[in-house]
Design a protein around this nucleic acid. Structure first.
Length: 155
DNA sequence: GCCAACGTTGGC
DNA sequence: GCCAACGTTGGC
């Protein structure tokens, strides 16, 4: 079974691509949205490929690639009152939220921006580019992934 | 189970 | 900093 392709959003002030490079492996915790939780628990698997997207920043867009290196498992920050996103309804016995582990892939020399992506036929339909999209992880097709990487590496 | 109010996200 | 979009909460 071939791996899948995803786009992970991050605000660079919260967690940058450079942080990921420095950390080696990152636990992608803190997701508190049920649709994304389902993907983390059921769909996002070791070996899947990731586009790393910066939101809420000066230059918005995709800055590099990453790889999933660990299947979904319970997000233990949910029952840590000191964490960024505590949720007392989630417990070790009955976890609600899930996370995966990722590692950095290639860093693009420059950000691939939405304005550059929209005119490209294969990319125009990407979920992340839809108005009002607020999902912190969105699926991308293999073609979308490959076209973005080609654009990124050409920079 | 509906839906208004509220809080958050994220592009501009 | 504004505001549209939209997920979640809570009263009924």
């Amino acid at each position: 079974m071939a791996g899948k392709y995803w786009l992970f959003k991050s605000e660079p002030t919260a967690y940058s691509f450079e942080d990921l490079v420095k950390d080696g492996t990152a636990e992608w915790d803190g997701v508190r949205n049920f649709q994304v939780r389902n993907w983390l628990r059921d769909e996002i698997k070791t070996g899947d490929q990731v586009l790393f997207y910066y939101s809420n920043t000066k230059v918005i867009g995709i800055v590099g690639t990453a790889t999933v290196v660990g299947d979904g498992y319970p997000d233990n920050t949910a029952w840590d009152p000191g964490s960024e996103h505590p949720d007392p309804k989630s417990t070790p016995e009955n976890p609600i939220w899930y996370m995966v582990d990722i590692q950095a892939g290639q860093r693009f020399a420059d950000t691939v921006t939405p304005d550059e992506m929209r005119p490209v036929a294969e990319l125009g339909e990407m979920v992340v580019l839809k108005k009002g999209n607020r999902l912190s992880i969105t699926p991308v097709t293999q073609e979308e992934f490959e076209v973005v990487v080609k654009l990124g590496l050409a920079k």
